[in-house]
């Protein structure tokens, strides 16, 4: 590996290339490399979140950007973490399902509570991705119409067909603050 390859990332005193990744308002300093615990240039954000940082709430299903299971927020927008290289996410603010709870009290986000109230899941594997997509929508449009909710969730697969109850759960918190 040539010196210039990671020129844009920080070089530590030891000569390791490092990058900082901001996840759920916490800044992680990660070493770029291919040893365990490091970020290989080929690692996806989903991989880093799950395997390097232990944030397994983000689910990987198709791993090809077609199912929405790995949806996280990047600078507030819903993105697919399986189709992003971690090394290209430096300087971005990432929010995962683990970042939705009130950090001090551990209280659930009203959207999470609404999913429970509406039983808006069956097996639950798609749920973190669904919630993150809905979260991005509500941040941009706090009072979406039913059509807008369905459109915002249109990239999120659910095989059990929880979507009817998901739409109700999102509707129930739309128009409310936070």
């Amino acid at each position: 590996m040539t010196g210039e390859i990671f020129a844009s990332n920080v070089e530590s005193a030891a000569g390791d290339k490092q990058m900082s990744l901001m996840v759920n308002a916490h800044s992680y300093l990660l070493t770029v490399g291919n040893r365990p615990g490091e970020v290989d240039p080929a690692h996806t954000l989903a991989f880093t979140l799950r395997e390097t940082l232990g944030l397994t709430g983000t689910k990987v299903s198709c791993d090809k950007g077609a199912c929405g299971g790995c949806t996280v927020l990047m600078d507030g927008k819903a993105v697919l973490s399986c189709m992003l290289l971690t090394i290209e996410c430096g300087g971005k603010e990432i929010t995962t399902i683990e970042g939705l709870m009130e950090p001090k009290t551990g209280a659930l986000d009203p959207l999470q509570q609404s999913f429970i109230d509406h039983s808006a899941f069956q097996c639950g594997f798609c749920t973190p991705g669904m919630i993150m997509s809905a979260k991005a929508l509500l941040a941009e449009n706090p009072s979406p119409s039913e059509e807008e909710i369905k459109e915002a969730l249109s990239g999120n697969f659910c095989r059990c067909i929880s979507q009817y109850q998901v739409v109700e759960a999102v509707k129930a918190v739309s128009g409310k603050k936070r």
């Binding site: 950007g65 929405g68 249109s154 990239g155």
Partner: peptide, 9 residues
Amino acid sequence: VAGPQIRNV
């Protein structure tokens, strides 16, 4: 094109 998450990137 695709879905919302793809269009965002």
